[in-house]
């Protein structure tokens, strides 16, 4: 038990367990009817029964998330670099980006269905719209936080722009970029589901919509569990990639020391 409590990995699972127990107890104590909140066990049973269906529906949602996230990085990073390097671009583009963020994506998502039909494209776009902003903001910060003395030193070494970028700026910006990407990927999951809500016949968002229509609350909760799992797995994958790419960063130093 003691080792379970001290292990980093076990802690969130233990907390989940505690929350589940609390959930179950509150339903019993306050006599909450099943059509409002299902008991945890019912959700687990539904999760078990519908597992193959949920898993197959998780696949399109994951693809839409990954697509939107990839698009966020591919589009967001270059825009962020332009903003970081050119005050002119920054003054034109940045306010517009902030402005675009205040538009509720749920409200515009139906538009994408009108434009692109019921396929994967509207979902990817919705995921992209949610995931793109954190990538831009943190990448701008990463590229702007380069020490001026370092730039001067590189200039005195006769550094080309290319060398400056790959040997200094990019590695320096990576930690900030990763923190933005981690926010982005969890938001991309939300975006994909929003896309599925408004017009789709596949994906976890569609399952949620359908379960809601049928008052199948256990299935709804089961779908939510799957959804969070997608988010967690993608986040952890990104975290692993981050650890491999920037083991030197302050946030990873403890383990880095242990392995180095």
């Amino acid at each position: 038990m003691k080792t379970l409590l001290t292990s980093q990995w076990a802690r969130p699972f233990l907390l989940i367990l505690v929350l589940l127990v609390l959930w179950d107890i509150s339903i019993r104590v306050f006599a909450i009817p099943a059509y409002l909140v299902p008991a945890p066990l019912e959700v687990v049973v539904q999760l078990w029964r519908e597992w193959p269906m949920l898993l197959s529906q998780a696949i399109p949602t994951t693809w839409a998330t990954l697509g939107g996230f990839a698009l966020s990085v591919v589009v967001g990073v270059p825009i962020a670099m332009l903003i970081a390097y050119s005050p002119l671009v920054e003054s034109f583009v940045y306010p517009l980006l902030v402005f675009s963020q205040s538009i509720p994506k749920v409200a515009v998502a139906p538009l994408f269905v009108v434009w692109f039909g019921f396929g994967i494209i509207p979902k990817v776009i919705a995921a992209f719209l949610l995931g793109f902003f954190p990538v831009v903001v943190s990448t701008v910060m990463g590229f702007k936080s380069i020490e001026h003395d370092m730039v001067d030193l590189a200039r005195s070494m006769g550094s080309s722009r290319w060398q400056m970028f790959f040997k200094i700026s990019l590695p320096q910006a990576l930690p900030a970029m990763f923190s933005g990407m981690k926010v982005s990927i969890t938001l991309a999951v939300v975006g994909a589901v929003v896309g599925e809500f408004v017009g789709s016949n596949s994906g976890i968002g569609y399952v949620l919509q359908k379960a809601n229509g049928n008052f199948d609350l256990p299935l709804m909760f089961a779908a939510l569990v799957i959804l969070s799992m997608i988010g967690v797995i993608l986040f952890v994958l990104l975290d692993v990639i981050e650890r491999m790419m920037i083991p030197w960063h302050a946030s990873h130093r403890q383990e880095f020391m242990a392995t180095a």
């Binding site: 020490e147 030193l153 070494m157 006769g158 040997k167």
Partner: peptide, 30 residues
């Protein structure tokens, strides 16, 4: 920018992802 000088600033301005040796060798790489 003059290439035939060596510059030392108040801060060490070392690259966090490079070891001592690699930080020194940056000069040669560039």
């Amino acid at each position: 920018p003059q290439k035939n000088v060596g510059i030392v600033f108040q801060g060490a301005v070392l690259l966090a992802w490079r070891t001592v040796l690699d930080n020194i060798l940056l000069q040669a790489e560039i």
